[in-house]
């Protein structure tokens, strides 16, 4: 009982601390984190519905389904590299397990996803798309994506202690991935030749799956999702391996 209370307090405190530090010196504070997804949604809708129309039905809702998981992913990995170096005060304490910071970062960025879920449902309802049975798979998608984000973040955070190139490389990768992930276009539009590229990219499969359950009221493509789950699990294991290997050297560098 005590252990549960303690761990809840620990995670809650660290998530709260993360929020506090992020917006401590700004006027709008947490509002910024709400503004960003909406601004990005507005621009994508403007560009791909009005300026260069992709002619996708109910485009705002279509984009938002992909944008929410994408923003969770990109905001986590955009900051992952500095998790250990900026939080030296925590990492250099006896008994502190640094991977907790990675877990907290993964969680605290998922809050935006959760906050915007009602907005998404309103939007879907506006277009006459009502929640259907496949929504029960949402926790599963969350779980797979958490694993993927946690693994990649742990790798980035650990390597970044030694060489900051890790975060730079990750930032480049995330920027490019935005175009290579079917966030603002349908995966079906991808040519036959490039299908494989999208099948092996777990993030792209996840975005498609979210869209399936929210937008199309359909089940995810199980074979692709299984592959994505396996890839995510492997990334997670790799992250843990790298961390275990380097964690003691890490303290010498921090």
């Amino acid at each position: 009982m005590k252990a549960i209370e303690y761990n809840v307090d620990l995670i809650r405190h660290l998530v709260w601390r993360d929020f506090l530090l992020r917006y401590k010196r700004s006027l709008l504070g947490v509002l910024w984190s709400l503004l960003l997804p909406l601004a990005q949604l507005a621009v994508l809708v403007l560009v791909f519905q009005k300026i260069v129309p992709l002619n996708i039905e109910d485009y705002p809702a279509f984009v938002f389904c992909g944008l929410l998981p994408w923003m969770w992913f990109s905001s986590c990995l955009g900051s992952a590299g500095y998790l250990f170096t900026y939080n030296r005060d925590l990492v250099r304490r006896p008994n502190f397990k640094p991977p907790i910071l990675v877990a907290v970062n993964t969680l605290s960025n998922s809050i935006h996803f959760l906050i915007f879920l009602p907005v998404l449902f309103l939007m879907l309802a506006f277009y006459g798309r009502h929640p259907a049975f496949p929504l029960v798979f949402l926790p599963l998608l969350f779980l797979i994506q958490s694993g993927l984000i946690f693994g990649l973040s742990l790798i980035t955070a650990t390597l970044n202690v030694f060489y900051e190139d890790a975060q730079y490389a990750m930032t480049v990768a995330v920027t490019l991935l935005f175009y290579l992930t079917p966030v603002w276009y349908p995966a079906e539009a991808v040519g036959e030749k490039y299908r494989l590229l999208y099948a092996v990219n777990p993030l792209s499969v996840l975005v498609q799956s979210y869209r399936a359950i929210f937008f199309q009221a359909a089940s995810p493509q199980w074979n692709l999702l299984l592959l994505a789950a396996i890839t995510s699990a492997m990334v997670l294991c790799l992250g843990c391996l790298i961390y275990r290997r380097l964690s003691s050297a890490m303290h010498d560098f921090l």
């Binding site: 405190h13 005060d89 250099r92 502190f96």
Partner: peptide, 19 residues
């Protein structure tokens, strides 16, 4: 070493205690 400069003394005590 265990203090975050952008947080107040009170907040730092809370962090230290929980950790």
């Amino acid at each position: 070493s265990g203090v975050h400069l952008d947080m107040t003394g009170r907040e730092n005590i809370m962090t230290a205690g929980i950790l």
